[in-house]
Each structure stands twice: as structure tokens, then as C-alpha cells.
């Protein structure tokens, strides 16, 4: 069955990029020490009065055919990681390697051939589709821009893509507003597939969809991965969805990865107190499993003034003196299981 094939997309023998620093040759994407600070400007002269530490030294790698889930709450920097990796936002520091090539400092023109290998789909497909252009042209646009096919070939390719993502080729002439939310996300996926990329970054791609439609889109993404050996960086806040679709998962808190592990290990034996708290907070769709929960209190601190030391210490039930002073490094606590906590 297709499921087995999909799950074996990353065979055990493949280089497991668990240690982000070891630069494996075969990785689709490697990000090292990625940092993005946004200036906070005020007043008439727009003087910089502070910084938002949106992303602060993030490292990970994604193997061919692998899905890396990136989870965290709003403001943790997960979307900024995706956009910076795409070079839609310029990184403050760190490096990005796409298929072994350093793309960190490439100009727009130099980036163009690399854009074919890396595509992005967004949460709100409606906001990312031009309302004045028929859906067929939206999907075919990347082919036109990259000069990859003449008009007739384009028409054929787009029709095939429509069919693959579950839309009727006859709908190519319809405009975005004529589609439902789920169908618009299918258009976004077809557009991302047009250039046959190696990696698709999904920024909350199913969050805005109703659950029955969400399942359709998740299944489609998994099928496509099985067929094409695609890699995904799957950015989302829904832990159950991330668990379902990812081979490995990275958890972010206030700009930093606090834990990164194989999906099964992360959900079965979370090593960071924040991951533990996140998992405990998710409501379980089974009334027999109602449980007394240990709910962490307080809000996420502002990324403009992140707490010193471990960012999580203000809400952590286990915090000690050293947690308030020293930022714990992301280190291996079990084979392939990284966590940034002094207590591990």
C-alpha cells in the first residue's frame, strides 16, 4: 500500500541528519546558526530603539524525502525560519545550503535557478493567489517565468497538475474566488509542484481548513511525497497534525529550537520541559482520556526582551538558578534526540 511506501521515504540507511553541524552531502536543505533580528523603530526618524529576536541561532537539516515538522506557539519564529530559509527575508546571520550549495548571499538573479528547487505554500491560499488571474495561469506562471515550456506544453502540464491535486482541468479557467478554501490550497500546492521542486516549505498549510478538508490536504501532501520523493519543512502549531505528517520534529520557543528528535521519540519521551508542557496542553479527542493536567501558567515573554538564560525559565516548573543565567546549548541527550535543557 501507498502508506508503507510513504513511510519508508527515509530508509533507515539514509544519512540521518540528527546532528545539524555535521554537513551531510545528501541533504536537501541545511540551515546553520540562522538568525534574524528585526529592528524596532520609533519616532519621526524611525530610529532603531530595539530588536525583535525572531530567530536566534537555529540549525537543522532535511534529507531527501523527509518531512521535518517545525512547531511552536505564535511568535516563536517558526514562520520567520521558513521565510528566511526561502531567502524571502534576509538573514541577519547564519548560513543556508540548498542541495549542497550555499545560497545565503546570492543575489536575486543568482537565486533564480535555485528557486526551482524550493517552493512555499502559505496558510491562507486566498491571500497568496492573484484574484484577477485564472487558476490555470496561476499554476502555470512559474513555468512561464522560468521559460520551461511553451504555451501548449504549459497547458498540458497544468492540466496534469490540476488532475493530480484533485481539481478538474476544466476549472483552470475559473478565478480564485470561485474555489472553496480547500480547493484554493490545492491550487497553491499545484503551483508549488509546477517546477518539480526538491523541497516544499509549508507555512501552516492546513491550519485555516475545516477538519474534513484538512484530512484531504494532509493525505494529498503525503501521497505526493511518496510519488516524488519530496522533502517538506512543515511549519504548524497543531501538534497532532505535525506528528501525523513528520518524520522528525523541531520544537521552537522564542526564536530557538529547544528540542529536535524523531517524531516517535519526541512524542513518547519529550526531553524539554516546554515540549512536555505543549503535549500536556493539547486536548485529546477521547472523553475517557480526560486527565488532570499540569497546565503551565503565564504567557510567552516578548521576543523584544527575551528572558536571560534559558528563555523558558520564567514558565518552567523545574527552573534552577543556572537556568536564569546561562542559555543551555542544544545537545544530544539520546541517539538522534537533541534538547536544550540544563537538566538533561
Amino acid at each position: 500500500m501507498g502508506v508503507d511506501r510513504m513511510l519508508s521515504a527515509t530508509p533507515d540507511s539514509a544519512p540521518t541528519p540528527t546532528l545539524p553541524r555535521a554537513r551531510g552531502r545528501g541533504n536537501v536543505l541545511e540551515v546553520e546558526g540562522l538568525t534574524k533580528h528585526f529592528a524596532v523603530r520609533k519616532g519621526l526618524l524611525r530610529r532603531a530603539v530595539g530588536k525583535v529576536y525572531a530567530v536566534d541561532g537555529v540549525s537543522f537539516a532535511i534529507a531527501p524525502g523527509e518531512t521535518l515538522g517545525l512547531v511552536g506557539e505564535s511568535g516563536c519564529g517558526k514562520s520567520t525560519v521558513g521565510r528566511t530559509a526561502m531567502r524571502l527575508i534576509e538573514p541577519t546571520a547564519g548560513s543556508i545550503h540548498l542541495q549542497g550549495q550555499d545560497i545565503t548571499r546570492l543575489s536575486r538573479a543568482e537565486m533564480r535557478p535555485h528557486r526551482r528547487a524550493m517552493q512555499i505554500i502559505f496558510q491562507d491560499p486566498y491571500a497568496s493567489l492573484n484574484p484577477r488571474i485564472p487558476a490555470g495561469e496561476i499554476v502555470g506562471e512559474p513555468l512561464r517565468v522560468h521559460g520551461l515550456a511553451d504555451a501548449r506544453q504549459r497547458e498540458e502540464r497544468v492540466a496534469a497538475l490540476f488532475q493530480r491535486v484533485g481539481l478538474r482541468p476544466a476549472q483552470m479557467r475559473n478565478y480564485p474566488h470561485e474555489f472553496s478554501g480547500g480547493q484554493r490550497q490545492r491550487i497553491g500546492i499545484a503551483r508549488a509542484l509546477a517546477l518539480d521542486p526538491a523541497l516544499i516549505i509549508g507555512d501552516e498549510p492546513v491550519s485555516a481548513l475545516d477538519v474534513s478538508i484538512q484530512a484531504q490536504v494532509i493525505n494529498l501532501l503525503r501521497d505526493l511525497q511518496g510519488e516524488r520523493g519530496l522533502s517538506y519543512l512543515f511549519i504548524a502549531h497543531d501538534l497532532a497534525v505535525v506528528r501525523h505528517i513528520s518524520h522528525r520534529v523541531a520544537v521552537m520557543y522564542l526564536g530557538r529550537i529547544v528540542e529536535l528528535a524523531e517524531t516517535r521519540a519526541l512524542f513518547a519521551t519529550p526531553q524539554h520541559p516546554y515540549t512536555e508542557a505543549l503535549l500536556a496542553a493539547v486536548p485529546v479527542a477521547d472523553p475517557r482520556k480526560r486527565r488532570p493536567r499540569r497546565i503551565i501558567q503565564g504567557d510567552v515573554p516578548s521576543p523584544i526582551r527575551p528572558p536571560p538564560g534559558c528563555h523558558f525559565h520564567t514558565r518552567c516548573p523545574y527552573a534552577e538558578a543556572r537556568c536564569r543565567e546561562l542559555a543551555p546549548p542544544l545537545k544530544q541527550v539520546a541517539p538522534g534526540h537533541l534538547a536544550a535543557c540544563h537538566l538533561r
Partner: peptide
Amino acid sequence: LMGSIPHLV
């Protein structure tokens, strides 16, 4: 609906 949601456990 129940079949279409992914579970945590």
C-alpha cells in the same frame, strides 16, 4: 469527523 483528525497518542 472523528476519523479525519490526527491523534497525539
